[in-house]
């Protein structure tokens, strides 16, 4: 079988590109780190790939606001290619800064609506007012809609590392749509998966939202970093785990799901 080919998009300030590529490789894909200049100058084309990943980092220094400059660049220069990519059933994932980019260019929560109503949500400064690096628990809350979490445990632990991760929808209608359409993929929770709100919600996100997908279920954006939990050795308490040797990190399943989907449907 031919391996799914993943484009890991880079630009100035991208910094989780290598580990994201590595996670996709562990999940069975072939990867290529591609600088946005190569796409803009048409030395590479998005259509040659089956999966798009926009990794974490501080693109353009998070100047003005996180993800804003890259979102603007993608919309100005590559919007058509991106829309075509998604319409061809191809999965897209934005992690941390990548999530911020997808939200700020309007591909999340729904690319269809952007023309009429503009961006529908934002990721803004944490309530604490500063960058925060910690492990959080995530509860999978959507149904099976999102292709990235088809076979996925209900509760996982994955680290966050961001200053601007507070999810804020434009209004109650947007939030209701997200809930009704089962687009909320992950919510911050406690280690039992039962409690929500502070202090388990690290940034003040509305409705404890940590990740959402678009209406097709193929575009996923999340603030936590699943690529940082693909081996038991990355878990903060791996020394306490039973049978640790058999366990890969829980983040790896996300990449596996994306790759499986691309192999099957793209």
């Amino acid at each position: 079988m031919k391996k799914a080919k993943v484009i890991v998009l880079r630009t100035a300030g991208t910094n989780c590109d290598m580990e994201t590529a590595y996670a996709f490789e562990l999940a069975g894909a072939e990867t290529e780190l591609v600088h946005i200049n190569a796409l803009v100058e048409k030395r590479k084309a998005l259509r040659e790939y089956q999966i798009l990943a926009i990794p974490g980092g501080f693109t353009y220094g998070d100047d003005v606001a996180s993800g804003r400059i890259l979102a603007n660049e993608l919309r100005s220069k590559l919007e058509d290619d991106l829309v075509r990519f998604i319409s061809k059933n191809k999965p897209v994932i934005g992690i941390c800064n990548g999530f911020q980019v997808l939200i700020k260019m309007g591909l999340l929560p729904s690319a269809d609506k952007i023309a009429d109503t503009g961006v529908q949500a934002t990721l803004t400064l944490n309530d604490s007012g500063r960058f925060d690096s910690r492990w959080v628990y995530l509860k999978k809350t959507g149904s099976e809609k999102c292709i990235w979490v088809k076979d996925f445990p209900d509760l996982v632990t994955i680290p966050i590392a961001h200053a601007e991760g507070k999810f804020v929808p434009r209004g109650a209608d947007v939030l209701k749509d997200l809930q009704d359409n089962e687009q909320i993929v992950f919510r911050y929770t406690d280690k039992t998966g039962k409690l929500f709100g502070r202090p388990y919600n690290p940034n003040g996100s509305i409705d404890d939202i940590a990740g959402i997908c678009d209406t097709t279920g193929r575009v996923l954006g999340l603030m936590p970093h699943p690529e940082r939990h693909i081996s038991y050795l990355q878990h903060p308490n791996w020394r306490r785990l039973q049978n640790k040797k058999h366990k890969l990190g829980t983040g790896l399943e996300i990449f596996r799901n994306g790759v499986k989907y691309a192999e099957k449907y793209v």
Binding site: N15, Y22, H225, E227, P236
Partner: peptide, 22 residues
């Protein structure tokens, strides 16, 4: 410590904050 990203690059095996509550 929490203001520094100690996980980026994915290589952290023993972190600056440890224990069940990190």
């Amino acid at each position: 410590i929490r203001q520094y990203d100690h996980e980026v690059q994915g290589g952290s095996v023993l972190k600056p904050l440890v224990g069940p509550n990190c």
